[in-house]
Computed example of a mutant assay.
Amino acid sequence: MSQERAVVLHRSSTRVLLGINLFFVALWSITLLNPQKLNILWFLVVVLLAVLFIVRNKNVSRTDVVIAVILGCLAAPSSMFMGVCSAVAYVGGVSVLKKSKHAIVLCKMVNKKEILKTICLALLVGLALGTVNILLAKISWNIAFSLKPEWFLNAMRAGISEEIIFRFFFFATCIYFIKDRLLSKLDNFLCYLVMILPHVLLHFNTVNFALGSVLALALLFGLPFAVMQRKRDVSSAIGAHTVVDVIRFCSFGV
């Protein structure tokens, strides 16, 4: 490939990734009109894209489906809807990434040592970020520690569904639409932005939106999980995210 053609392709990828970011920001803006009713649009987009990826790639295995069902079942006790969406998103994401040069794996199960690394990383990052979350949240909320089964189920649902849908699947969406090309530094940044920004924006509305809060949430609780997925595996991010939410729910009940 000539250098000139490579530059053209990189520019094309950058435009596509910018477009994906703008699309999700626009989608969030639309849902602000009536969040309770219009947030369903996020999941409608995810399911439609997932079905497109599955049909176009035609490479989903029985193992992929079984793993998706397991993930969905783990999230379902807290929310059947989120469980189903997570399962569909996982299959759609895998169909794009399984043979990609930018592949993200569910878990590095090469040997027991690698599995232990994933578990330790999830616990260390989860405990650290969970502690930071408490220190920040106690400014506005009073700590009222409690242990309820629902806190653990809600945390598991959040860890699985948010990491699968808003990071794993959204990254797969980027890779699909840039046709698995190599990523420039700018493209890589835009991919991370897609993995972070939409999920962060969902925590804000017209009343509580503040740029500083968006940046803080993105850097503290978005970027670490995105990096863990890209550099390690999805399981480490799910584990850390779940630990953070268990600490939050048990400390504040919300």
Rank of each mutant, 00 (worst) to 15 (best):
V46P: 04
M80N: 02
A128Q: 04
L18A: 06
L147I: 15
V254K: 12
C120L: 15
F225A: 13
R15C: 04
A218Q: 03
F177G: 11
G93L: 13
V69E: 10
T63N: 13
W151T: 05
S236K: 00
F204I: 03
S95Y: 00
G19Y: 06
G130S: 10
I40N: 05
N21Q: 05
N34R: 06
K185E: 13
T63D: 12
P149R: 05
W28R: 00
I119W: 01
S86W: 01
N154L: 14
E150P: 01
R248M: 14
Y192E: 01
S161M: 02
V200T: 15
S100C: 04
C174Q: 04
S79G: 11
V69Y: 08
A122E: 02
D233N: 11
C73T: 13
L190M: 02
L71V: 00
I30R: 03
Y176D: 03
R56W: 15
S161F: 07
V125A: 01
S2V: 04
S140W: 10
L136I: 05
V214H: 09
K99I: 13
H203A: 11
E150K: 08
A210M: 07
L182S: 14
L52F: 03
T63Q: 13
F252G: 10
V88K: 03
M1S: 05
P77T: 08
V234F: 05
S12L: 03
G222K: 06
R157G: 13
N57T: 05
V55Q: 10
V234Q: 01
S140A: 08
V200D: 06
H241G: 10
F170I: 02
F169P: 10
V207C: 01
L22M: 03
L44A: 06
S146A: 13
F152Y: 08
A240I: 12
S146C: 02
N142Q: 12
E163Q: 08
L135G: 07
L147P: 03
R62D: 08
L52Q: 10
S95L: 06
L219S: 14
F152D: 07
I238A: 02
E162C: 00
A226W: 01
P198Q: 01
I143V: 13
V65Q: 09
L219C: 12
I104W: 01
V125Y: 02
F204C: 10
K101F: 08
K112C: 00
N205V: 01
C191N: 10
R56D: 14
A89Q: 06
S100N: 07
Y176W: 07
K37N: 15
L52T: 10
I30F: 15
F177Q: 01
M195F: 00
D233M: 07
P224M: 02
F23I: 10
V69A: 14
S146G: 14
G159Q: 00
F81M: 13
F249Q: 03
Q3S: 14
L220H: 12
Q3A: 13
D233I: 07
K101C: 04
F221M: 05
L48W: 13
A87E: 07
V47T: 11
P35N: 09
L17C: 11
R15V: 08
K58P: 14
L129W: 06
T242P: 08
V254G: 02
A158H: 01
N133V: 03
G239W: 02
C85L: 05
V94P: 04
